[in-house]
Design a binder for these strands. Structure first.
Lengths: 107, 107
DNA sequence: TTGACATAATACCATATGGTATCCCATAAA
DNA sequence: TTTATGGGATACCATATGGTATTATGTCAA
């Protein structure tokens, strides 16, 4: 069972979504991430913990630094959950997606 | 500017996500939705208000009933926001999506 | 070894959140 | 015209959330 809740929870805060965008460009230490925001490093750290709980980022220690990296894979279940509703906002991508999910071949 | 925040906020609660699923099957009155959960009608009503603030549902009055209906269109910006990261979890759908977004033709 | 520094951990605070209970209003039905 | 019923509004409560300040810890460098 993919635990959707921690991921959805993590995505609910705009600062955390911004952090994910940052990390999509490059891995960053806690200090580097904190440098991008006005709030204290402690506050940013809390956000990083919540992102980690949602499995949206991974951390590794390098000496006295902690490097945060994006784990985009964990966004997949969220993407799919929302994708369930794509049948209600029909467009070409949606049609293609359904086709692929049914194992059919696009014309 | 598409206000993502109210939608992301609305999606952060599991009860609200369940409500969206329910409404994807059929429109429902407040009482009908409340009948699907253990909590009080007032609690469900609060969730419906938050979903409305996220523009994820629409309501219309019919006599003394209020009918709630899904507005899946509002999920589109959320889907797209997450879709930005699809380049990091490569699979065939992802590749196709990129191709389409670039206006190219799938092979 | 000692000092500086990147983090982590903790305590604390104000506000948001998810829930209940209660009361009120409008409308359908007797 | 009552009465019951679907729904909205309000007050209240416990806990979660997003933030600060402060203290402690491990590691790099002089």
């Amino acid at each position: 069972m993919t635990a959707l809740q921690p991921a959805f929870r993590a995505l609910a805060d705009p600062t955390r979504r911004d952090i994910l965008r940052l990390l999509s460009a490059s891995d960053m230490t806690v200090g580097q991430v904190a440098g991008k925001f006005q709030m204290t490093r402690a506050a940013v750290k809390k956000h990083l913990v919540i992102l980690e709980e949602g499995d949206l980022i991974a951390t590794r220690r390098s000496g006295r630094e902690t490097i945060n990296s994006l784990n985009a894979q964990a966004l997949r279940p969220v993407f799919d959950w929302i994708g369930y509703f794509d049948r209600f906002w029909d467009d070409r991508l949606s049609d293609l997606k359904s086709t692929l999910e049914n194992g059919e071949t696009p014309e």
